[in-house]
Every structure is written in C-alpha cells, then in structure tokens.
Amino acid sequence: MLWTNIFAGFGGQGVLLIGQLLALAGMNEGREVSWLPSYGPEMRGGTANCSVVVSDEPIASPVLSMADCVIAMNTPSLDKFESCVNPGGKLFINSSIIEKKATRTDIDVYYVPCNEIADSLQNPKVGNMAMLGAYLEATKAVEVKSILDALLYKLGEKKAKFIPLNEEAIRLGAESIRK
C-alpha cells in the first residue's frame, strides 16, 4: 500500500497539522511515513502545504510532484494542485469557501463543507478535522482511532477534553461524503 498526499490551504487552516496526524497515525500503525512541509517567507494568511507519504515499503522520494490525493482547503490550493492528482486519484475540496468545481473528469472528487461542519460544532478550528474525516472515509489510509491517538499525543493529556469535539468533526466530515 502506498498513499501519496498533498494537503494545501491558507496558513492557519491546520493543513500542516492534519498532514502530521496522518503521518503519526501511519507510523503508529507500523507503516513507513514522511511529512514534508513547503516552507517559505510567508507567515499567517499565506499559503501552506505539506506532502505526506504513507507506505508499506521504505519511501524513496518524500518530494511529490504528483499525488494520489490532493486536499484543497482554499481556492489558490485547488488552482495550484488540481493538475497534480494522479489519474484515478482523489481530490478533496473545501466546498465551504471554494466556489468553483473541479475540472478533471479522470479522478474522484469529494466536496466537503468543512466550515459549515465546524460551525455546526461551534468551533471554527475543526474544519481541518472534518476534511480529514472525509479523507479517511474515502481512502481508509489509516484507522480513525490511530488519528485520535495521534491527536492526543500532539495535544497532551491536559487538552484531552478536546478529543470528542475533533472526533465529532471527523465523523461529520466522513458522513458528508457518504450520501
């Protein structure tokens, strides 16, 4: 099994974090993983993306030009990375703020209303987790439990109270692409 993924969005949308959670969860499931952020002089409000590989084999290149899955949290990310989805791959679009539709017809496209889901949970911060939920539903790349364990590891026990909220966001994200 080999999943190559590009997570992209605005700085602050948590795309680097959900990429890291996927890498951590993959590692804890015994897979080979790599997480490579794009980094630049931009800070808040700028664009951010990371390349995440989860594989059963040792990972050759952690640098991706094409990926099995692209997660676009904002319009510039969709513009930049739609062409980078491997044929037959998956494209996840944050339909809450991206008004346009995908133009590719040779891939599976999922529209996830991340911000609406976050708003329904009264916490704008969990839009990324809704997207991750949709990604996990479509790919089954790792178990949801592994993601939650990874999140607990990142948050620490003091912030463990936020786990149920994130779990709910993941569930709603998964549900949004099921119908």
Binding site: Q20, A23, M27, E32, V33, S34, W35, L36, P37, Y39, P62, V63
Partner: peptide
C-alpha cells in the same frame, strides 16, 4: 539540504 532539516520522518 533544507529538505532533511524540515522533513518529519520516524
């Protein structure tokens, strides 16, 4: 290279 510095791996 900067990739080694910035990348996360197990």
């Amino acid at each position: 290279d900067g990739i080694i510095g910035q990348m996360m791996e197990p």
